[in-house]
Design a protein around this nucleic acid. Sequence first.
DNA 1: ATAGGGTTAG
Length: 553
Amino acid sequence: MRSIKDGFRFHAHAIKNGITSTVFTSNQLIHLYSKHGFLAEAHKLFDEMPERNVFTWNAIIWAYIKTQNLKQARELFDSAPSKDLVTYNSMLSGYINTDGYETNALKLFIEMQSLNDETRIDEFSLTRMLNLSAKLSMESYGKQLHSYMVKTANNISGFAVSSLIDMYSKCGCFREVCQVFDGCAGVLDLVSKNAMVAACCREGELEMGVNLFWRDLELNDVVSWNTLISGYVQNGCEEDALKLFVHMEENEVRWNEHTIAGLLSACAGLRSLKLGKEVHGWVLKYELGFNPFISSGLVDVYCKCGNMKYAELVYATIGTGNAFSITSMIVGHSSQGNMGEARRLFDSLTEKSSIIWTALFTGYVKSQQCEAVFELLSEFRVKEAMVPDALILISVLGACAIQAALNPGKQIHAYVLRIGIELDEKLVSAMVDMYSKSGNIKYAEKIFQRVTNRDAVIYNIMTAGYAHHGHENQAIQQFEEMLERGVRPDAVTFVALLSACRHCGLVELGEKYFASMTDYNILPEIDHYACMIDLYGRANQLEKAQERQKRRY
DNA sequence: ATAGGGTTAG
């Protein structure tokens, strides 16, 4: 009985001739039926069996788990007269694979620990629990499982290694990932290798991942190629992702849906309408639009390219109801300044995740509609039983900064302190910017000084703040400190710096900074030229200003 | 003789 056809034929024959199948044969039939999605047939056979053994129960429980009927699976599980380790592991597996049942998995695993010795726990249970730890990012739970696996010698198979690498990577422990990888030389198989490449890409260690990928090239499968294509995109190397795809075809590796989704992210990152349309053609040709990653990827490409007409079209045909499509659409409309459209889409949703709220907040700030931001905050607090998170507060602080609204800004600051929201880099930067733009450079300075890990963004904010308040020397001093600490200046840094120079007529210093931009591989943009022209204009050096203008255009 | 597992996408 290999195929489902054989199964049906055999079953019909047995019924017709009044033959009672053995328990063994019926078990196989149940398994065959459930494997091909015939749950009702499987259950009917189960009901009709005069005699059942533990394999029978395992088969029927598995049939319900596979179709995500966790409640019925559990009822059968509880009523099973005999259970072995496979019964427990199947139930555990079902809970882990189904969203919303994670707590049940944890409870069941605890229960399993007090079973008698033959049933207890094996490598299967442990690797499944590692998968759960990865899913929920439970670092210390994963580490405890790892220790237990070492103690019981359950840490040396390909299954164990790949699960460990995946768990540590998803919990953000790259050092531990490398330790596992280095210690498993003998048992490293394809899946573990793929997990390691993925872990490197996730960590930003692209080169390490690439090197590993090209080692034993013939070992790679389609997952390996997909992993690296996505890895390139994750790390901002979209061009390399596309090149690898071409290479993949040359190596006669057949692409799949993951590949196409990766290509779409590359197109979105490159803002390439032309390539996006090309991939869209493939999606139509091979009828891949049903895949939610692909449909939302298409919506995203068109949004990122600013082509809302196409985005709308794709969204209406295949993207509706997908949270990622909706977010892309709201962000897309917002970035085009179509806040009306963004709002309409937002209002059409009955349930709104915090990502969707954030998308609308960000849109209003970007289109400078500050009153709308404040109104949306009141609306959020009335409608949602949640505390606004850091991302929402950043938008609100942005609105305060635009309006130079010191008091509302202070209220947000107080709120952050009261609720105990963590002051991460972005929130701190928004706070410093708000105080600076609302005219309170002293407060901005105080907060800035408490930040020990200063990045380019916060330096830029402080430098621009000093420049605006007429503290040119301090602005320049910030720049010097930035260099001393090895923080790389960017285009925004030089706008702040040059505007400090123009405010106090430091022509030569301005020229020096302007010239030094090339040292940092930064091309002067329109803002930099505007600063230089203003600088010369104020210093009565109009010839130089004209010269700059000519060279610019 | 029967059953179960690990890697890739926002």
